[in-house]
Amino acid sequence: MTPGLAAGLRRWGVPLVWLGLLLLASLGMAELEAVFRWLEPDSREVIYRRTEFLTLLGRHLLVVGVASLLAIVAGVGAAVLVTRPFGRDFLPLVAQFASMGQTFPPVAVLALAVPVLGFGTLPIIVALLLYGLLPIVRNSLAGLQGIDPAVHEAARGMGMSRGQVLRQVELPLAAPVILAGVRTSVTINIATAALGATVGASNLGDPIISGIVNGNTAYIVQGALLIGLLALTVDSAFERLLGWRRIRFR
């Protein structure tokens, strides 16, 4: 094994293990039929078969991924705009709203989105996007405003243009704080997307909801297991990413 690969494996070992377990569980759930039969001896069916687990996982990832990507672009973009000279007027309002919006419970936001946007996958994406924006905006603002003005001035004094200062100084320095916000946002989104199963979006929340409705504990455990593994995979990946950032920019 080359040293680079070994170092990479050491760094990404934990997320890779979780990812492996996640894939294994979504592909081989049927192999565990005996366990689920023991859990739920009276039900006719003990493995959720309405949709493949891998398909559900894919849909879950798609919804969270699209919403998170858009939220990152819009959130970091908004934070950059309101910290530029021409956007400063909007800074107090955006900062106050981003910190106040954190108190809105995700379920309530999701529920309020349905009357306005309707049932289905698109409303979920919009709701997740809007809600996921708040931690990203708040952390991006904190990161960008936390930079020592002297650093900014030194970069300008070296003859860098405003755009260069933003790209080569401000954003890299703020990156760890921004990434922490992205992590919060994605973690909340994975959980909230599962609730999307109650508003007509099909994803890993489906087996849980179906299990609760039909009183089938085996379904619930299957859905919960996969969502839990997905959350742990993503969260541990972010932890590695943050640890690595911290070392690089210390």
Partner: peptide, 17 residues
């Protein structure tokens, strides 16, 4: 930290059994 990562719906579900 581990507990906090697990989505609420999943944790509620896992506690049922």
């Amino acid at each position: 930290n581990f507990l906090q990562t697990i989505p609420s719906l999943a944790l509620f579900g896992l506690l049922l059994a």
